[in-house]
């Protein structure tokens, strides 16, 4: 008896897993919450605030998708993942979307069978050293001990950088950003390397940020973006166009303050299409017509998210740089809503 129950459970679980890939949207709506994979804690990008609420640049993507799909930006279950566990979590269906400053690479896209839906931050790998070490360029790092988060592209970039410049180094592999920070501050490594944005975020949490410098060399391209599983294109489209919506909203001047006003109808047909007063864009995605209104009213547009979490007025203090709109000389360029 017990055995047959066990077998039955197994069989049902097997069937469920087989079907799961094609209907993420229905599953999320039925569950009433979005499972979103984030980092285990990187200030400005994804970290619990003083009240235990997750907040940050990547978290805003999760909240935006939840607002689009469920109409409620708070309906998100955050799943903290490490560099090592994130892909397994996404592949196994434990999370619906991974927004964890993950670099878009060929092999992750093709071989690991994930779908990167866009780029929410153009980044590059940099080095941080204590100021009193007197190092001003990454070319002076021959023989240095380098703390590095294991299981990331930074590990490979680092090996390539030192090999191509004929320098030696000693890698100290670390599992999470918090541990790396502790090791770096204790002086167990001379250099900490990760994406420049991550370095800025980490430095902001130090007691004395000015005692550390980020070296000028950026040794890699790191386009960071949210990703979903292969095989459910409808779900991929939803996440992609939510991200594009945030970017377009900034370009068209839609903000969380004026979105309600604009949703009543405007002269600009593209704004009308986005906010659902014209056309059927929401229905094509299988969502409500006011999906983007929900998104922008709850998290704001891309510029608001950037300034609120990692911008120049926050402790992280990142400039827009490559992440400005294409009209301002940056790389952000959303396809049209048409």
């Amino acid at each position: 008896m017990k055995k047959s129950v066990f077998l039955g459970t197994l069989a049902v679980a097997g069937l469920a897993a087989g079907f799961a890939s094609a209907q993420t949207l229905a599953e999320v709506q039925e569950r009433g919450a979005l499972n979103c994979g984030v980092t285990t804690g990187l200030t400005g990008f994804a970290a619990p605030d003083a009240n235990g609420e997750w907040a940050g640049f990547d978290v805003a993507i999760c909240r935006a998708v939840a607002a689009a799909v469920l109409g409620d930006p708070m309906a998100v279950e955050f799943v903290p993942t490490t560099g090592q566990t994130r892909f397994t979590a996404l592949a196994s269906g434990e999370i619906d979307v991974l927004a964890r400053n993950t670099t878009w690479t060929f092999s992750r896209d093709v071989d690991l069978s994930f779908e990167f839906v866009g780029v929410n931050y153009y980044d590059g790998q940099g080095f941080m050293v204590p100021r009193d070490l007197g190092v001003s360029s990454a070319m002076e790092l021959d023989g240095a001990t380098v703390c590095i988060q294991t299981g990331t592209t930074t590990e490979l970039n680092l090996a390539d950088f030192f090999a191509s410049n004929n320098m030696s180094y000693e890698p100290v592999p670390i599992e999470t950003n918090a541990e790396a920070q502790q090791q770096y501050l204790a002086g167990a490594c001379d250099v900490y390397t990760t994406d420049a944005s991550g370095l800025a975020a980490t430095r902001a949490t130090f007691e004395d940020p000015s005692a550390h410098v980020v070296l000028p060399e950026i040794i890699s391209k790191e386009p960071l973006g949210p990703l979903v599983r292969h095989g459910d294109n409808e779900w991929g489209d939803i996440v992609r166009w939510t991200l594009n919506g945030l970017i377009s909203a900034e370009e068209l001047g839609i903000t969380s303050a004026n979105v309600m006003e604009l949703a009543a109808g405007t002269e600009n047909p593209e704004i009308n299409r986005m906010l659902g007063t014209e056309g059927e864009l929401g229905a094509m995605l299988g969502l409500e017509s006011d999906w983007l209104v929900n998104v922008i009213s709850s998290v704001g547009n891309y510029g608001e998210i950037f300034e609120g979490n990692i911008g120049e007025n926050t402790p992280i203090g990142l400039a827009r740089g490559l992440n400005a709109q294409w009209t301002d000389g940056g790389l952000l360029y959303s396809p049209p809503f048409r």
């Binding site: 892909f87 690991l112 294991t150 990331t152 590990e155 592999p173």
Partner: peptide, 13 residues
């Protein structure tokens, strides 16, 4: 566990 079971799995999937 860290080489084969960690970095290698992560880089190759």
């Amino acid at each position: 566990r860290s080489t084969l079971g960690g970095i290698t799995i992560n880089q190759t999937g």
